[in-house]
Design a protein around this nucleic acid. Structure first.
Lengths: 197, 197
DNA sequence: TTGAAAGTATGACGGTCATCATATTATATG
DNA sequence: CATATAATATGATGACCGTCATACTTTCAA
């Protein structure tokens, strides 16, 4: 082989990175092949050397979103006592920074509405992400000796996703901040995290 | 005038009805002029006799979504004591029926993710819908003598929207039902509605 | 019944997109 | 340095979409 063994793999990864960003900005259906390739510094020609079709490409990009971003935050939670870990996670999730960034963060809110319109694989990948995050929250709640941890985790995740989505939709900054703040406060009180710290 | 005075208005309304349905199914960006017109039993030709551009058309269709569906449920709540009204609303919002229907129901979850990518008018219309629904919930909570009604209403709406969206995204029916049920139970307990009825 | 005007249909144009065949460039090996 | 080949670029094709000019059909008034 003439090129580096990893050359193609690196390019592929870069294209998927750009696709993930584009999906956050424009949604999984509006992104175009040529646009993503251009963002990766390439032309549209080589696309089909990497992906069999655009549909498969979108599925790969969505899977890629679940492997990249969230890991850092979740890894960090592992090294902390459950109360602090949950508090930090809620504060992060419902922060202005998380609301405003398009370069990372939880994929769930971005894909939520489009999920029913995605390919089977993508839907499954999405559902796996939901289940994973729910179980992480549930584990921490169990460690805090709360009853019905799984139920509470599910309902907590619903409010996290809903509040972030509504905050992103609200054009008025003050109101948007208020949406985040209200759910932040409520969730911490609800989960008995207030006394912490 | 040669046609009935209301003829054009009726056609326009029908096209907007179909557009609203299409938006619920495919999102505000994927719907096409010809497709919507065909669904309304027309061809694409007459479109520009009704709407100046597709962009304006989408904005009109979104506004239309806020005028049509939700009104019935909200009107019904008015004639009821606040405790029962809220209980019924939560049960309706997080019902399987509301999750599965594409022909009506709350527009907020459908448009949430796309809202930041919409026209200014549409975003404002969306924000107005959020504010309206929040204030209705807040009013009922105030009637129940709860403190911080506005804060609690905001956080309640976040969970309603989030839970419905996640339930729609979940491909497994059992898990999807569970998401609805958990938030339904939690919200009613949280708002002190359990003792009701 | 007829004419005129409101409403709708036909068909075309330019643009964008996914897809693919073919040409070109880059680089590791001899 | 030469060459083979992996990786990417050029360019084309057909499909779809928004837009609009023009032709047709419907229906009310005279």
């Amino acid at each position: 082989m003439r090129y580096d063994t990893e050359h193609k793999a690196r390019t592929r990864r870069k294209v998927l990175d750009e696709a993930a960003k584009a999906i956050r900005e424009e949604g999984p259906h509006r992104l175009g092949v040529a646009g993503v390739m251009a963002r990766a510094g390439l032309t549209h020609g080589g696309f089909y050397a990497h992906f069999p079709s655009k549909e498969a490409f979108v599925a790969d990009a969505i899977a890629h979103m679940f492997e990249g971003g969230p890991t850092a935050m979740l890894e960090r939670m592992k090294g902390q006592p459950p109360r602090q870990a949950l508090t930090e996670y809620i504060d992060f999730y419902l922060s202005r920074r998380h609301r405003d960034t398009r370069e990372g963060g939880c994929p769930l809110p971005y894909l939520a509405v489009d999920a029913p319109r995605l390919t089977e694989v993508s839907r499954e990948r999405y559902a796996k992400g939901v289940a994973h995050l729910t179980s992480i929250i549930a584990t921490h709640l169990t460690a805090l000796a709360r009853d019905h941890a799984e139920d509470e985790a599910s309902s907590t995740l619903a409010e996290l996703v809903g509040a972030l989505t509504l905050a992103r939709a609200e054009p008025d900054p003050t109101r948007s901040d208020a949406i985040l703040e209200r759910s932040r406060t409520h969730l911490k009180r609800r989960l008995g995290l207030e006394a912490a710290q």
